[in-house]
Design a protein around this nucleic acid. Structure first.
Lengths: 335, 335
DNA sequence: GGGTCATTTGAAAACGGTTTCAAGTCATTC
DNA sequence: GAATGACTTGAAACCGTTTTCAAATGACCC
């Protein structure tokens, strides 16, 4: 079918060794033979077979990406960062949607390993002991993105949820709000759930505002859960004047719920989100939020994985990126 | 390092042939030896090396995805459909962001081919003769998604932009609007640009509404271009009472521009979009739009590719999916 | 007892590259 | 003119599988 290195060798009247040297730009070939080989390659339209090459090199230059759901804009932005850095280093990425199912995740690791990928990036709300054992028995370099394992066994990149959300809530407090609700993500999520909720409480504590459990609702980061949580909150006898949501989608849901209940935003109730997905600038009012450096997080994670795969040792195995408060139109002074 | 088929053979006291038969579930092995081999595999923690396997099979069970930009929610939704169907058939996908740069696209095709992928799915605004020649010289099965080539040389799946947008505009007309603007995508885009614009004109023509070139603005599908186009339109001496936008993002931009100009939507101006991305249900007012079956488009494209890779011949090489008008809150009767 | 046949098994040749190591060529040196 | 060394080159082993083909085994039949 397609020409092989042997065909080229025959055509150029040299050995396969020499052809191999030429296609790998090794210096030990005379200019004249090199040219002859190049001509033969051209003539036959030869392309080296990366599979054969991988078999002997034991390197595929492919990395696996275990992502909950690529259609979620948070992940797709992160993945873009990963892919850009990967291709910068001549790596390609295999994408796997896991829906955070341990079984799916484990199966993916297994076949990726059979496919001899050079490394793995993992994203998921939790990294359980089962995860750790799956990763360890795969013997592959693994980097965690937007998550981390309890024991810090694997390098990880994530955003500082605690301080970021504290800043978000302090922003609300600085506007005069004292009755502030929180729509958090699942608290068992140790990166995007718990820390953001803790930041909320920490801000309250700092200003001696008592914590009212009724004002704390748990959602799942999605629009609908934000909408429903807000509806519940607004039925309270003594509703809040501001809401901090653990994700932009939930914040958008909350805003819609408020508007549907006839409240103006930020006139009667302020809302602040978390993530700064594209949506945040497109809804009305534009969302005040914490910008997560999603692209950068993906890029950083892939950068670390590349380092590890190159056999170098990481200077920092635990990278915490700062979030940034972006003040737009969904927050205003208490009236 | 990792155990090979030879190690297993030695451990089980059989030949590699027999081991190979066992791991491929071939029937010509006695129950007793099979068990012995299975035990050895277990004991050594053996996993077959897919690279070596691919070398002889000439099948990698990997397909390449050439996508303009995975961080765009339209593409990420499509890709999700592709990946789901791929994994259903035991394929994995390598993701490449091309930014619609011919050079990047060509380079990706080349290295994917070197990596011996079994097929390719391509997305981009245009398929030029250069593209065709790149695909053809790669000798890989190719399926086009949300685009198509002039000569119909490659199987393609896309949404019927002409009839869908005609339906969208007819919806506006049925609400009593006669002065209707159009914010289209680039007209050189033969799938998402031109046809949607043509559908707009066709609807006007059907109801004998004259076409006013001033009401036709060209954008690039993104939010900002919609915003700017709307601002221009609203400065017209005789502004329209409704706008049809070629994408939801542009529609969202248009709505924001209208609100910023003090107009109410849909009270004073109706807006209809195209795509039905998640955003459409999250903005205020919720967007009336044409739902593109994005997931289904990805799934269908991958389904076709799988067929082709299996050596079967496609019943239909040109699949046109219908769009669906979804009436929400951004359109209302002319006042 | 030899021939036939079905059933299991394994040796060896691929697949398309890389790499080790030895050898050949030729100018330079003493 | 032989020894030295720099520079090119190639034969062959190897990477971890699959597959072809032949051989071994044992049951069965006449």
């Amino acid at each position: 079918m397609s020409a092989t290195i042997r065909d080229v060798a025959k055509e150029a009247n040299v050995s396969v060794t020499t052809v191999s040297r030429v296609i790998n730009n090794q210096p030990l070939v005379s200019e004249e033979t090199r040219q002859r080989v190049l001509d033969a390659i051209d003539k036959l339209g030869f392309h080296p077979n990366a599979v054969a090459r991988s078999l002997v090199n034991k390197k595929t230059h492919i990395v696996g990406l275990l992502i909950p759901d690529i259609s979620n804009s948070f992940f797709s932005e992160v993945v873009r960062g990963m892919e850009d850095v990967a291709s910068m280093h001549d790596y390609h990425v295999i994408l796997c949607n896991t829906d955070q199912q341990l079984l799916t995740e484990a199966r993916c690791v297994e076949v990726l390993r059979e496919k001899q990928v050079d490394g793995l990036i993992f994203m998921s709300e939790q990294v359980t002991p089962q995860h750790e054992s799956v990763f360890e028995s795969s013997r592959l370099p693994v980097v965690l993105a937007s998550t981390r394992d309890e024991h810090g066994r694997f390098p990880a990149v994530y955003v500082d949820g605690l301080n970021s959300s504290q800043a978000a809530v302090e922003h609300l407090i600085s506007l005069g709000h004292t009755r502030i609700a929180c729509i958090s993500g699942p608290l068992k999520d140790l990166i995007a759930g718990k820390p953001r909720f803790d930041g909320y409480r920490q801000a309250l504590a700092k200003f001696d505002i008592p914590f009212d459990p009724k004002l704390a609702q748990e959602g799942d980061f999605r629009f609908e859960s934000g909408y429903r949580a807000m509806k519940r909150i607004l039925q309270l006898p003594n509703p809040p004047t501001a809401v901090f949501a653990g994700s932009d989608e939930m914040a958008a849901g909350a805003i819609n719920a408020a508007l549907d209940s006839g409240l103006s935003v930020p006139g009667e109730i302020s809302v602040v989100g978390f993530d700064n997905i594209r949506l945040a600038g497109m809804i009305r009012p534009k969302l005040t939020t914490i910008a997560q450096p999603m692209y950068e997080m993906g890029a950083t994670a892939m950068g670390m994985l590349v380092e590890v795969m190159a056999g170098r040792v990481l200077k920092k195995t635990d990278v915490m990126l700062p979030g940034q408060l972006i003040i737009r139109d969904s927050t205003g002074p208490r009236r």
